[in-house]
Amino acid sequence: MGRIIIFNIIRFLVLLILQVAVLKNIGYYNIAVAFPYILIILLLPIGLPNFLLYTLAFLTGLSIDAFYDSIGIHAAACVALAYFRIFFHKITIELDEQESFNTPSWGNMGFKWYSTYIVLSVVIHHVVLFFVEAFSFYNFIHTLLSIALSGVFTLILIFVISLLTYHKKSRVIN
């Protein structure tokens, strides 16, 4: 239990620093930008109470916003992502598993589940993020292009990070 909390804090710090110190400066103009920091929210323990999950997601988004000077935009996207996460877990994970504190990682859940989870999450997050950022349907095509290209960029990075930290069945019994 304590180990899981420490792991999550380390993951938060590492991904936040990666995002704001490195990835903020990398991008194809403002069309393709990667946001692998959403792994912070996606890899939180499964059995987290809803309110706590929303609070953590909101604070993660707000931390990113502070560095990007874009108050509320990432927070909104992260909250939407948290809602999607709850929904997805509810319909795909068995009841007894839903109570556990396991990390929903590649090693624990298998590739098929994990890849579906990541792809759908990235889509949801980026759609909300870019539409809230544009705040209109003006330049619709440009926004869609940003979502598609940034999504691919983010997915590649997330899968690289997941591969590098892959552990087979590293479940911790609480």
């Binding site: 909101f58 509320g72 935009i73 909250v79 948290a82 809230v132």
Partner: peptide
């Protein structure tokens, strides 16, 4: 509750953006 928390947090974020 998941849905209502979502509405609450999301509206709050949007309020921040608009402000």
């Amino acid at each position: 509750n998941a849905f209502f928390w979502f509405i609450l947090f999301f509206v709050f974020s949007l309020a921040l953006v608009v402000n």
